[in-house]
């Protein structure tokens, strides 16, 4: 059931230079994304999970060129959009949209909800006057909000409602691909399900493709067809979501799965939890070889010497680990 590839990321690297002093010439950088590659197929949801600081959000923002990448290729429908100029990029922005994490920071507090949703219509000259109003009402209804609320300001809405306004905004240009940058992590559990269900329904109805970035593996497993696990800016494991849960191969994925609490006292009591020691190393000065080796229970000598490649372990199950 492989659909055509809509987005292809090859060896994407994003380093942020740290404070360039006038006198100091040592260039320290934050190694946010260190060469990730993956493909997104039309109509699928690819989950990108990892802990904070693993570069998943930076990856999403670099793909859509909110940050200029250090190196790498991002092909949208076969063409490298990183070489596009501003005008060509404007056309791409109608196809690739983004939903943001913080429902409080992602809506301009000085604009009405109608203007927020209608902004893209103005930018791309999609609709004016009555048509614009109709389109805004239609979008509000699509996300389950009352059209009468178009004249209200964002701070009058609850977190879940604001997130839906954000979704309506991204839908206004009829995108094909939406990058969801932790769209639910700031929301309450009962509201999370509303948003996730809405995203699923929209995918079905509009044939959308999602890159779903999150740290909550259980939610990612629920919504994604395939999952890529990131650690310190690298993909360590990439496979379909059931295989990932049933047969995780990378020690980090195993630890991540084991760390997630399950709302069932019996299972919790019976579980032998694998608790990782220590913290994620600083991305300014990552360890040599495999980045995970400092916390890995299976670390060997070779892990410090060379970086493991992402290798296919049968049936589209890709893992980057020396110990397999």
């Amino acid at each position: 059931m492989k659909n055509e590839v809509i987005l292809e990321v090859e060896n994407l690297v994003k380093h942020f230079p740290l404070e360039e002093g006038i006198f100091s010439r040592h260039h320290k950088k934050v190694h946010a994304v260190n060469g990730i590659s993956f493909q997104l197929h039309q109509g699928e949801t690819l989950g990108l999970v990892g802990e904070s600081g693993c570069g998943k959000s930076t990856a999403g923002r670099t793909i859509i060129r909110l940050y200029e990448p250090t190196s790498g290729i991002v092909k949208y429908q076969g063409k490298n959009i990183l070489s596009y100029n501003a005008k060509e990029m404007l056309a791409v922005r109608r196809d690739i949209q983004m939903i943001f994490q913080d429902p409080y920071a992602s809506l301009n507090p000085r604009m009405t909800v109608g203007d927020i949703i209608g902004e893209a219509l103005d930018i791309h000259h999609l609709a004016r006057g009555q048509k614009r109003t109709d389109r805004i009402y239609e979008l509000l209804e699509t996300v389950g909000l009352n059209p009468e609320h178009a004249n209200r300001f964002p701070h009058e809405f609850s977190g879940g409602q604001r997130q839906r306004i954000g979704i309506a905004r991204s839908l206004s240009v009829n995108p094909k691909l939406i990058i969801c940058d932790e769209p639910i992590s700031a929301l309450d559990v009962s509201i999370q399900a509303q948003i996730v269900n809405m995203l699923e329904e929209l995918q079905e109805k509009l044939g959308l493709t999602y890159l779903f970035i999150a740290h909550d593996l259980s939610m990612v497993k629920h919504i994604s067809h395939r999952i890529a696990v990131m650690y310190l800016g690298r993909i360590v494991e990439l496979t379909d979501s059931f295989t990932l849960y049933e047969k995780p191969l990378h020690p980090y994925t195993q630890a991540l799965l084991s760390a997630i609490p399950i709302p069932d006292p019996d299972i919790e009591a019976a579980r032998q939890r694998q608790v990782l020691k220590g913290n994620v190393p600083s991305p300014i000065d990552p360890p040599s070889g495999c980045y995970f080796r400092t916390r890995c229970p299976k670390a060997q000598e070779v892990c410090a010497l060379s970086t493991p490649e992402l290798i296919e372990q049968g049936n589209n199950h890709w893992v980057a680990c020396h110990c397999i």
Partner: peptide
Amino acid sequence: LLKSVPRLDA
């Protein structure tokens, strides 16, 4: 509350 969260072991 119980039904709105996906379970990892689903």
